[in-house]
Design a binder for these strands. Sequence first.
DNA 1: TTTTACACTTAACACTGTTAAGTATCGGAG
DNA 2: CTCCGATACTTAACAGTGTTAAGTGTAAAA
Lengths: 226, 226
Amino acid sequence: MGTVERREREKVELRKKILDAARALFVEVGYEAVTMRKIAQAIEYSPTAIYLHFRDKKAVMQALCDADFLKLAKRFRKIAEVVDPIERLRQAGYAYAEFALRHPNHYRLMFMTPHPPHPPEDSAIEHGNRDQDAYAFVLWTVEEAIALGRLRPEFDDAQLVAQIVWSAVHGWVSLRMTKCNEPWVDWRPQRKSIEAVIQVTISGILRTDATPVVAWTTSNAPVRRA
Amino acid sequence: MGTVERREREKVELRKKILDAARALFVEVGYEAVTMRKIAQAIEYSPTAIYLHFRDKKAVMQALCDADFLKLAKRFRKIAEVVDPIERLRQAGYAYAEFALRHPNHYRLMFMTPHPPHPPEDSAIEHGNRDQDAYAFVLWTVEEAIALGRLRPEFDDAQLVAQIVWSAVHGWVSLRMTKCNEPWVDWRPQRKSIEAVIQVTISGILRTDATPVVAWTTSNAPVRRA
DNA sequence: TTTTACACTTAACACTGTTAAGTATCGGAG
DNA sequence: CTCCGATACTTAACAGTGTTAAGTGTAAAA
């Protein structure tokens, strides 16, 4: 009889219900302000019911993060097709920043709160895999840029360069997120601002005698692999 | 009789005692993990005693932040004497990063956690004053660099450039702080790393035909005002 | 019909920041 | 010396948190 299958189906259904309710709450009020009791109330179960599906509060958030980060990864796979590593870097920067601003709570949890000796097996994201891990993607792209002689000769350390690029975009994103309502900083429009950040960083590492960076965004260069 | 003076003296003494104990705890285990009860236990008073000296837990941290940020401000005043705005920018970047890593909990509270419609009169830091507000300092320096024609012509918006520079250094600092123990990113030595970040950012905004950036750090240029 | 497995709830624990109400101390006034 | 009132502090509690041990009801299996 399919009773065990039905049970299983009901179980994943409730799990999904929890995740949906939790996502709505997290997005609305942020991680700290969401309580297990509120999630429970939203799905009309007791708070303890959640613990039958998730180890703890962090695990609920982790599950949401993973799901959304896989969407980012999907976009990265598209960007991976861009032939020119510099243009690829630029596009990855945009995608990353856009994702972060669309999912500020996830981003905050993953990149702005220090994790204790965090067991990595909890996360579905496979580090080092450039299709899933943003840092690995940048690292790979930088390595290619170095191999192609596109960077200034003093930047021969891919790890270092990747960290610089990541720092710039992450810095912009996180400042934007935490200090967006401060009256004493006159923020420029998002689009223009992140463009400038990426522009500055790329021209800071690029060989000065190379083709101007901007040119690669237009049609004078092969953009995607055949 | 000096009894009222003695009372007053005892009051500031206890206030100091609270701050000292709180600082030690905050530094050791971070803001979240410190409880009012633990601070109270450290000074051998009841938890409520703290509330006679500080409005709430945040106010205790705020007082510590202010005190330490004034030290950073002092260093900024020295750096303000550097004549060349580009070199000034570089030195401010180092000072900022060094400060952040020395006071990670303060930095986290001030630049990595979003403040609700925070009443600014609580803070002793005067925004817009370049001797106290790091952003104002950067803004002023960038304005001077623009006025002197040191930046690429497309970077004529001081706010935008200041935000770029701040993003880069803040990004480096905050990534370093939150992701320093991650096994999947091979961090380079701090000194070398922050140097590279500043180097890239500055050469990304600098006129390409200008004097090489590095030259200004050495003795071929007047460094301090007379 | 009884047993057993399972999903779920109730009630509680050990915390948190914060506060209302009570107490002890001590200088000054009568 | 006695009483008053201000001041500094403590006790006990509130309302909330994440989390868990123990109890309940249901439905399939024996």
